[in-house]
Design a protein around this nucleic acid. Structure first.
Lengths: 355, 355
DNA sequence: CTGAAAGCGCTTACAG
DNA sequence: CTGAAAGCGCTTACAG
């Protein structure tokens, strides 16, 4: 390890001077010295030790990427195409901006607090965190933070959130299905597990409720279905279990209803693809007998057959926006809005057939 | 931030004493003091600042996860199911063992060196790194390291590598296809880009060659095909382009040959699935007309229809082994073997039909 | 224009 | 059994 002192020795100056040119406080140093030091810095490939920087209060340049849940659909969350795409994008941005990403498996609050203070992280990005959980954490965590896809139960966000326009996504989905001849299409969303410490008074309907994102997507879906004066009953909003076995049984039971409706909108590509396969395995043809629209446009969407028609969201952009906002906060800027909703658009592929 | 000093103040002792109980040097401290301090430590949720620890030469407990290439099949490498599964596993292990993972986009050598020295990482795990590249890097990087899936061109590995038994995987694939009635099955592998600085004298055949893993998988495949005395010509080993467009054209051209062979073994699930879709789009039925076997058993394998029969490798285990070995090296152990090959096994699903 | 010195939060060899 | 002090590599207010 080459130190500041070493550079100073080589240049025949003091550490102070080297540090000064290192930080561009170059007006107080003679041009000659600057040049000499810069050259040495260059040649030696000197890299300041971060431990020291952390100690001198310059921040750590670490951003914690907190993943709120460990498993998604039976695999580690990091394998979820949405999470990995988000992480890839944030990592990429961070690298360019001279920040470093540290992954924090965020199932345990204690663990997050531990890392955040140990490493003195400059900021945190949360994915898969509910508002209730974040509020709880925030009381003991005094860090800049940006949340991704968290839904507020209040009128306004009082923290930074980057999301998408769920309502509009649902609307586009509904509008398209309506236009394709399916005024009776159903909307299917997977339930979100309620943790004991996340009791949500208003929305609670017995023990399950669909994720808040699905709630909004459904609202948009319904609005589109009703735009020509029809009525779209809440009974067309179907919440299925988060347990794969149970879900399969539910699909089984719903089969007549599905065939009858002729078209399904989903709150997530994952379930849409699962349904395509479910139907395929029973000899039911998509889109000939049942049309399907997904939501997210994840990588799988192009791999399935038929290719999945879905609502596209730009995850890379979302990651970039989340990072950018966090970075600005870290740099001392005060952001005016507390939330950003990225736009969303329908991608037509092969899973819907005009009736 | 609560400091060691603060704890010492609360306990009415010196920092030294607190530090001692913190590190279990408890024999030199009275039980009474130990208890008192432990209690305070507990209640205060004290976390030592890592910056300080780094400075006092205790290591950083950071492990760099270096991803050797930025894009795989048109998406950021981190979205590759193999990479994300590996990362998830390593992250999980690291968290349990009190290590921290820092992701390093490893396309640039300079960047790796920078991070490694800045953060004084305790060790590095490399994925997607060729031996030549690693050798080059190693000259300027004095860090413990474990590579995953790197292939040596020498007789023996002179660095730590965790891989799988490619030959055996190929053998199982070949054996199964032979047994299912396809003595003429083809093996298809995607080429690996040769970088200018990675010129590999021995294996070079014009400008392309299949990845070294495919080379070995093919050898096993061939051996299985020949076990009953037949001859498996090298012409049955087909290397396709890494460019999707080109690859598609190649598939197109190969179509008669494919139909003729009746079965294909692949070096990677990704290509196997691509082929299933390619055939599907042309109305050719898998497995009725063409049987297909993949390699890796990635998450997609269960999502495609027909479900993909493939050679399974345990990525989570691989990650765990890689981490464990690195950890042991960091802790000062000298490992006897330099490489570990994880076993591999055939998973029969629906993409092969007995002839 | 340049440098000596204090300080960040920790560890550890050493003295008591 | 306990603590004062030096030292890790940096930054920065201050003196010259």
């Amino acid at each position: 390890m080459i130190r500041l002192q070493d550079i100073a020795d080589m240049a025949g100056v003091s550490r102070t001077t080297v540090s000064n040119v290192l930080h561009g406080n170059t007006k107080r140093v003679s041009q000659e010295t600057v040049d000499k030091i810069k050259k040495i810095l260059e040649e030696s490939g000197y890299q300041p030790n971060i431990g020291s920087m952390m100690l001198t209060g310059k921040g750590s340049r670490i951003i914690g990427f907190v993943i709120g849940y460990s498993y998604t659909h039976g695999h580690p969350s990091m394998m979820d195409p949405f999470i990995s795409a988000l992480l890839a994008s944030i990592q990429d941005q961070a690298e360019k901006a001279g920040y470093y990403i540290m992954i924090i498996g965020g199932s345990e609050e204690k663990h997050i607090l531990e890392i955040a203070s140990r490493w003195n992280v400059d900021g945190l990005i949360f994915i898969g965190y509910s508002e209730v959980r974040y509020r709880q954490l925030r009381r003991r965590l005094n860090k800049k933070a940006v949340l991704v896809d968290t839904y507020t139960l209040k009128k306004e966000y009082d923290y930074q959130n980057v999301g998408i326009d769920d309502w509009d996504g649902g609307y586009q989905m509904g509008e398209y299905l309506l236009e394709m001849g399916y005024p009776e299409a159903l909307f299917i969303g997977e339930e979100t597990r309620i943790r004991v410490n996340e009791f949500v008074p208003k929305l609670r309907s017995d023990k399950i409720f669909s994720g808040l994102c699905n709630e909004k997507r459904w609202q948009g879906f319904k609005a589109a279905m009703e735009k020509k004066g029809g009525f779209c009953s809440i009974r067309r909003f179907i919440t299925v279990s988060e347990d794969a076995q149970t879900r399969k049984r539910q699909y089984e039971r719903m089969l007549p209803q599905i065939l009858d409706a002729g078209a399904l909108g989903f709150g997530a590509d994952y379930n849409a693809i699962e349904m395509i396969n479910f139907l395929h395995d029973r000899g039911i043809r998509v889109p000939d007998q049942v049309s399907i629209v997904g939501f997210d446009d994840c990588v799988y969407a192009e791999y399935v057959r038929p290719r999945l028609t879905t609502i596209h969201q730009d995850v890379a952009e979302k990651g970039a926006v989340a990072f950018d906002r966090l970075k600005r906060m870290i740099e001392g800027e005060t952001l005016s809005e507390t939330y950003v909703f990225a736009p969303v658009k329908l991608i037509v592929r092969d899973s819907v057939k005009r009736k």
